[in-house]
Computed example of a mutant assay.
Amino acid sequence: MNETLVTLQGWLGSDVDVRSVGETTVASFRVGCTPRRYSRRTESWGDADTQWYRVNAWRQLAEHCADSLRRGDPVVVHGKMSARTFVDKAGVEVSVLEVEAWSVGHDLNRGVSRFTKTARPVESPAPSVTSETSADAREEVTAA
């Protein structure tokens, strides 16, 4: 598989926008990453230009992002990056970098988070097959 996998560490630049695509939920948000650089000339640290990425999370991850993330939160996003070009309403060609998120979480270098595990729906157990049932089934098969 020749995918471009990335891990972004940055800040949520927008609230999480949730929508439905068919019967699937997708959450979209922007992440801004501002690298720090050391200048030997001035012997000081400074911020480089902020790079913005659109992140899309699908299905259950989308719902968890919507419930957990707010604008300004520090996040770590891991996923597949792609570039997309389109023409906006003003007729200008725009290129964007998008990440299809495989995992998203708060950046715990920047603060504390509390995790709440979601309960999985309880599935009804499959009917058990006893030796009597198996014997009856074999008899029916051989009788037919």
Rank of each mutant, 00 (worst) to 15 (best):
M81S: 13
V26P: 01
E123G: 03
E123C: 00
K80Y: 10
D17F: 15
G91M: 05
D67A: 15
V92I: 08
D47E: 12
L97T: 00
R114Y: 07
T34G: 06
T34V: 06
H106V: 12
S82T: 08
A27G: 12
H64E: 11
T4N: 15
V55Y: 04
R120I: 00
S20G: 03
V112I: 15
A83M: 07
W58R: 10
E132Y: 09
V104P: 02
S68T: 05
T42A: 07
T133R: 15
R41C: 05
V104S: 03
D67P: 13
L61S: 09
H64L: 14
S113Q: 12
V31C: 04
V16Q: 08
A66F: 01
E123M: 00
W52E: 10
T116M: 01
L8P: 04
V112N: 11
D107I: 04
S28A: 14
R84L: 01
T50V: 11
G72V: 05
S128L: 08
V129E: 04
R30V: 08
E3S: 11
R36E: 08
W45F: 13
G46T: 01
D17K: 13
R41V: 10
F115G: 08
P127H: 05
L8F: 04
D15N: 11
T85P: 05
D88P: 09
D73W: 06
Q9Y: 10
Q51W: 01
F86C: 10
T34K: 05
H78F: 11
V18T: 13
A66V: 00
L12C: 13
R71M: 10
S95C: 09
A57L: 07
V92K: 11
W58N: 12
L5A: 04
V87S: 07
T25I: 10
Y38Q: 01
E63C: 15
L12E: 10
L8Y: 01
S128F: 03
F29E: 04
M81R: 14
R110Q: 08
E63S: 13
C65N: 04
E63F: 07
V94L: 11
V94I: 15
G72R: 09
R40Q: 02
C65W: 01
E132G: 13
T4Y: 12
H106A: 13
R70K: 08
G111Y: 01
E63V: 15
E63I: 12
L61D: 07
G22H: 05
G105L: 03
V96F: 07
N109F: 00
T50M: 09
G13S: 02
G32V: 03
W58C: 09
V122R: 13
P127G: 03
L5F: 07
L61Y: 05
D49Y: 12
V112C: 07
L8S: 06
E132D: 15
G105T: 01
V92M: 08
A119F: 02
C65P: 08
K80V: 15
V18K: 12
T4H: 15
A83H: 02
T133W: 14
